[in-house]
Structure formats: structure tokens, C-alpha cells
């Protein structure tokens, strides 16, 4: 499992911090170099932990002053108690995980709310490339077919069907275009990046 995160590719930070309550506790899965948590610490006074598998990123997180726990998300979140965090964040990582259902269930168990961001495979630029017979490559999906960490690319529609069939209640949905502007009309076509806040239905 890899994260697609780099500090330069962070237009979702602003949106995520707007979704998070002041002083909340946050678990950031696939935290990379810890930049998001560092940002949230500063912007919203949150406390919490990042989870990261890669040695170098763990080191970067420590250098960034972040609490980081080295672990493989694919093994689940058994080290964390039920409802231990106000928010569990999975930023630009959903499309890279193998055990997608398990991870989302685990996030719903550990967090009171979950925030997920992912590149929208249904974005029109991707559709155009597929129409011309190519695997899409874009700012949001910068990899070639042979070197991509993405194993489960998904569209906004795909995700909402998943939520519907997996007892997930969407609390907030924000879609951005490539320039980071909000898209309200036909988001699955014009949206490059999707940000969802959700919890378990019936709560």
C-alpha cells in the first residue's frame, strides 16, 4: 500500500481543515510526511496520530513533529479502540488500498466520523483519454499504468453507491476541479478531487 501524497499536492488540506472541529482528535491514515497533521495541528489545534508504513515517511513525520505509528493499514486498525478518535482521515489513499471494505469498516469503528479524499476517475479529462484508448494520466492520477500504486480507482458515483450499500451516511461532500475551485454541477464529470465526511448510518 502506498500513498499518493506529497506536500505539493495538497489542495484538500484546506477543505479537510474546514471540516474538522477545533481541538478534535484525529487519526490520519497513510500520513506520509505528516504534513496534513502538522497543518491540522496548527490550523485547528487537533491532537492525534498518523499511521504510515514507509520507513522514510515515518522519519519525515518524526522530523515534522508528528506522532506517527508505523503500521500497514491493510492489517487493519486493531491497535485502536472503538470510537477512539473524533475523525479518521484517509487522504488520497483510498484508491491504493487492497482491502478497501475492511479499511472503511475499520475507520468507521475507530472514528466517530471519517473523512476520505480521492481523485475522481470519472473526471472528464480521464474520460477523454479513455475515449482515445489511453489509461488516464493527470495531475490527480500522475502515474503510468505500469508504475501506479492505484489499484482501485473509483468515480464519485462508484463511491456513493458503495456508501449506499455499506450503511455509510454521507455528512458532507465537497468536489474540486483541477484548480481547486468547488464544483456543484455534474461533479462526477467536472470534479477532479472528491472530499467526503461520513459516519455509520443508524448512529
Amino acid at each position: 500500500m502506498m500513498t499518493n501524497r506529497s506536500s505539493s499536492h495538497r489542495q484538500d488540506y484546506r477543505i479537510i481543515s474546514s471540516m474538522i472541529r477545533e481541538g478534535a482528535t484525529v487519526l490520519d491514515l497513510g500520513c506520509g510526511d505528516g504534513a496534513l497533521l502538522a497543518h491540522l495541528k496548527q490550523a485547528c489545534g487537533v491532537s492525534g496520530y498518523g499511521v504510515e508504513k514507509d520507513d522514510q515517511k515515518v522519519l519525515s513525520s518524526v522530523k515534522n513533529g508528528i506522532n506517527v505509528i508505523q503500521a500497514d493499514l491493510e492489517q487493519g486498525l486493531s491497535g485502536f479502540a472503538d470510537g477512539a478518535f473524533d475523525y479518521v482521515v484517509l487522504s488520497l489513499t483510498l484508491q491504493t488500498v487492497h482491502e478497501t471494505e475492511t479499511i472503511i469498516q475499520e475507520m468507521l469503528r475507530v472514528g466517530k466520523e471519517v473523512i476520505v479524499t480521492f481523485p475522481n476517475f470519472g473526471f472528464w479529462r480521464h474520460r477523454v483519454q479513455i475515449f482515445f484508448g489511453k489509461t488516464p494520466v493527470s495531475k490527480e492520477l500522475p502515474y503510468q499504468w505500469y508504475d501506479t500504486p492505484n489499484v482501485h480507482v473509483l468515480t464519485i458515483s462508484d463511491f456513493e453507491i458503495f456508501c449506499d450499500t455499506h450503511s455509510v451516511r454521507i455528512l458532507e461532500k465537497i468536489v474540486l476541479n483541477e484548480q481547486g475551485a468547488r464544483i456543484n454541477v455534474r461533479p462526477n464529470l467536472f470534479g477532479a478531487l472528491a472530499i467526503y465526511r461520513f459516519n455509520r448510518r443508524g448512529l
Binding site: Y49, N67, I69, Q70, G79
Partner: peptide, 14 residues
């Protein structure tokens, strides 16, 4: 680590 996290203490683990 789990006991420290449950206490919301600052911990990094490698």
C-alpha cells in the same frame, strides 16, 4: 503503544 494511544499521550512508534 496501544496503552499510550488510549491515554492520548504523544507517542511515535517505529
Amino acid at each position: 503503544v496501544e496503552a499510550l494511544v488510549d491515554n492520548n499521550l504523544d507517542v511515535s512508534y517505529a
